[in-house]
Structures are given as C-alpha cells and as structure tokens.
C-alpha cells in the first residue's frame, strides 16, 4: 500500500512538473516520467501486459514522437504566439469544466469495498486476449477502424495537392 502512495505521489508530482516546466522539452521529459509511474501502477495492479504495452507504446513510441516534434520546433519566447482573447476564453471554459468534474467526482467519492483479485493471472496476455477477442470484439474492432480513419486522414493531410496547371 505504501508503494502505491509513493508511486501515486510521484505521478502527481511529475504531472505537475509537466505543466510548470518552462521548457517544453523538459515538459515532455516529465511526461515520460509520468508515464513511467503509470507503468509501475499497472504492475502493482498485476497487469503485466498492459504495463509493458504502456511502456512500449506510450513511453517508447508516442513520447519519442512528441520529443521529436518539440526538438524540431525550437520553441522560445520570441516565437510564442500572442494570446488571443478567444484562446483565453477557451482556457477559462476548459478549466471550469475540469473544476466541475473534479468537484463532481469528489462529491460522488465514497470508499468502495476493496476489490479482491480472484484470478492472479488476470493480467496475462492470454486472458486479456481472450476477453478482448470474445466479449469486447466489437469495441475492439471499432477502435481499430478509428485508428485506420486517423491514418487515412494523416495520409490525406500529408499528400501534396496536385498542381492546378498540371
């Protein structure tokens, strides 16, 4: 239990650093650390497969891309876009929504009975695969279609438009 609290503290600490870091690259690095603490959470929850996949996909691939973009952008004070009042408004609304959600969840908070793991092998690939491909087949396939559509969209965006004269 104390491990959980320690890791949970670390996740919150690092995610706060993500927001407060001045340099965007440092921000991304803190985000990586945050994801790493999530991986440890998964392991604590006896979900090794999810832990490793989180490790590979989020830390190993997606965050590398984030870092990649951040390094290439060369963000600094001069290139910072001016804060439009519309952006400020959007920020206020988003922040308000977050606050409402937080308050709502705090109000609904009550101690649930501790979940007892009946099957210690629940987190293994075999069980996860069986559940994913039988019970949750439809959502699984739909999410893959979602990814496909995102990919097609990216290809469309990246493709050069044919010249008008040609």
């Amino acid at each position: 239990m104390s491990t959980f609290y320690f890791i949970a503290f670390l996740s919150i600490f690092f995610s706060l650093l993500v927001i407060f870091a001045k340099n965007p690259v440092h921000s991304v690095l803190y985000l990586i650390l945050t994801f790493f603490t999530f991986t440890i959470h998964y392991i604590l929850l006896n979900a090794q497969f999810l832990a490793v996949v989180n490790f590979i996909v989020y830390m190993g691939a997606i965050m590398v891309l984030f870092l990649f973009v951040m390094m290439l952008l060369n963000l600094n004070k001069e290139t910072e876009p001016g804060k439009h009042y519309l952006a400020k408004l959007a920020g206020v609304i988003a922040g308000g929504c977050l606050l409402v959600t937080l308050v709502g969840s705090l109000k609904a908070y009550k101690l649930s009975a501790p979940v007892i793991l009946h099957d210690p092998n629940l987190g293994l690939v075999k069980n996860l695969g069986k559940v994913l491909f039988s019970e949750f087949l439809l959502p699984f396939e739909i999410s893959s279609v979602l990814l496909l559509s995102a990919m097609v969209g990216a290809v469309l965006l990246a493709k050069k438009e044919p010249r008008a004269t040609a």
Binding site: I32, F49, V52, V53, I56, M59, G60, A61, V64, L67
Partner: peptide, 12 residues
Amino acid sequence: LYIFGVVSLGVY
C-alpha cells in the same frame, strides 16, 4: 515485450 520496451527506451 520487456526487451522491446528496453530497446525503445534506449533511444531516449
């Protein structure tokens, strides 16, 4: 997968 994770971490 562990090895994969470690390898993908190596790029950092």
